[in-house]
């Protein structure tokens, strides 16, 4: 199950819960009950809901921010492979398009003109990770390719007329193969 699948499932469950709450209330809306009773019950329930959401928030925040999901931007890149990327209207300039699998790659991404988005896609057109490509700023994206193969860079920030054509292929080769 890919990361996207898990996100999708979580979202569907969340939306389904909201929908069930609404359907429940709508089904009951034809009946009549003393507003005071309804309110007392609802407010008691709300405390639990609020507390539950806070607790959920704390757990999710902790789990999703530790370790911090963005590589350190200071100092020299800590990855064994470094690729310098410059976005241009409308092409990707990279000092190499060949990297090794299983070993972290630091992409140092900037732009020569406008904002671009540096998105790495696998051969099934699934987005693996991304960062922004900005003039005057270098963003460091550290990623480890799991499998050798053909990958593609797609532009993910609207940058003008040929935005959708800003595609470049990269080769990920077996990590042990190219030692020399």
């Amino acid at each position: 199950m890919s990361f996207q699948d898990r996100i999708w499932l979580t979202t569907l469950v969340g939306i389904a819960l909201v929908t069930l709450a609404f359907l429940h209330v709508i089904r009951q809306s034809g009946r009549e009950e003393d507003p005071k009773t309804v309110q007392t019950r609802a407010y008691a329930l709300r405390r639990w809901l609020f507390g539950g959401l806070i607790a959920l928030g704390i757990v999710v925040t902790g789990a999703s921010l530790w370790p911090f999901p963005i590589a350190s931007q200071h100092g020299a890149p800590m990855a064994p492979q470094v690729v310098h990327v410059v976005g241009h209207q409308w092409a990707w300039q990279m000092d190499t398009t060949r990297v090794r699998a299983g070993i972290p790659v630091a992409f140092e991404v900037t732009s020569a003109d406008v904002n671009h988005g540096f998105g790495i896609y696998d051969s099934t057109d699934r987005l693996l990770t991304q960062t922004q490509s900005m003039p005057g700023v270098t963003n460091r994206l550290v990623y480890t390719f799991e499998h050798p193969g053909k990958y593609r860079i797609l532009c993910l920030e609207y940058c003008g007329l040929a935005h959708h054509a800003m595609i470049r292929e990269i080769d990920v080769v077996d990590g042990t193969e190219e030692e020399s």
């Binding site: 009951q28 809306s29 009946r31 009549e32 609802a42 407010y43």
Partner: peptide, 8 residues
Amino acid sequence: LTNIHRSR
């Protein structure tokens, strides 16, 4: 929702 619940 509380406002709607069993409000006819």
